[in-house]
């Protein structure tokens, strides 16, 4: 090998190692860039995950609340007038009372039971100024609610609806847990001095079913989806105000708007 060839080989070798050195440096820079990107991502990722879960939770809660929140219901004027004409069977208080409280209730619903006592006191306190209308709105997930509504209507056919209404709420804790609630309803009918044979026939008859269905249909047409649902002079009472204090305030307000004639 001549001196020129050796010199050329040496130059090629130097270039080779320089190239290798450059490539290694480039790789190192790429790796550093990758490593720093990965670290940044790791730092950001938990924030992203938490924000995402928070966003989903708030979104789901808002959607659920919108689906559940009470729609501001009111009975249309035409319907109200029609209602006035078709006097409800289950009414306590004078027809000309300035305030009408219409309740959609389920005899097995605990809040309805808890509200029944205070409502009775309000009726006494307001006297002729208040008229109370009760509508059956039994929920299918309450085992004996429908039967209880039938029992009240069957008692109503013998003119003792309100007595049975009050008794069913008073005894709610007992018959709600009973495997055969009908037996208890019959014993309540006895307590109220009803004709038992007639009561037992009526409770399974088409008349009481038709009355309960009519009440339920009226409730559904007004957008009722929970019990108790109460309307005061055709304006729905928000669920938050379904307590004695707020109800009295609402009645007082209604009395101011429509004072005793």
């Amino acid at each position: 090998m001549g001196a020129t060839t050796r010199l050329r080989a040496a130059r090629a070798s130097t270039e080779f190692w320089t190239r290798i050195d450059l490539e290694l440096r480039s790789c190192s820079l790429n790796y550093s860039a990758f490593a720093s990107t990965s670290t940044a991502l790791k730092r950001v990722l938990p924030f992203v995950i938490v924000a995402l879960v928070g966003f989903i939770t708030v979104g789901a809660a808002t959607m659920l609340y919108r689906a559940k929140r009470p729609v501001i219901l009111s009975i249309a004027k035409e319907k109200a007038t029609e209602k006035e004409r078709q006097e409800s069977i289950h009414v306590r208080g004078p027809a000309q009372a300035p305030v009408t409280l219409e309740e959609f209730g389920d005899f097995q619903c605990p809040p309805c039971g808890m509200l029944s006592g205070p409502l009775l006191e309000m009726e006494k306190d307001y006297g002729p100024k208040l008229r109370v209308v009760f509508r059956n709105f039994p929920f299918p997930n309450h085992q004996h609610a429908l039967e209880a509504a039938y029992a009240a209507e069957a008692a109503g056919l013998q003119g003792r609806y309100w007595e049975m209404h009050d008794l069913l709420y008073k005894e709610q804790a007992n018959w709600s847990q009973a495997p055969d609630a009908k037996q208890l309803f019959v014993s309540y009918a006895k307590m109220l001095g009803l004709e038992i044979d007639r009561f037992e026939t009526d409770i399974a008859g088409p008349t009481v079913k038709a009355r309960v269905t009519a009440d339920q249909e009226r409730g559904k047409s007004l957008g009722v989806n929970a019990t108790p649902s109460i309307f005061i002079n055709n304006q729905v009472v928000p669920p938050k105000s379904l307590n004695p204090t707020a109800l009295r305030a609402a009645i007082d307000e209604a009395l101011k708007e429509r004072p005793t004639s």
């Binding site: 939770t57 789901a60 809660a61 659920l64 609340y65 559940k68 929140r69 009470p70 619903c109 605990p110 809040p111 309805c112 929920f139 997930n141 309450h142 804790a173 709600s176 929970a226 019990t227 108790p228 928000p238 669920p239 938050k240 379904l242």
Partner: peptide
């Protein structure tokens, strides 16, 4: 979250149909 929404919507009334739940 479900229970909070129930509470805000005032729907303890039908909490699974269980009186215990309401209590």
């Amino acid at each position: 979250t479900y229970l909070t929404v129930q509470n805000l919507a005032g729907e303890t009334a039908v909490c699974g149909g269980s009186p215990d739940c309401f209590r």
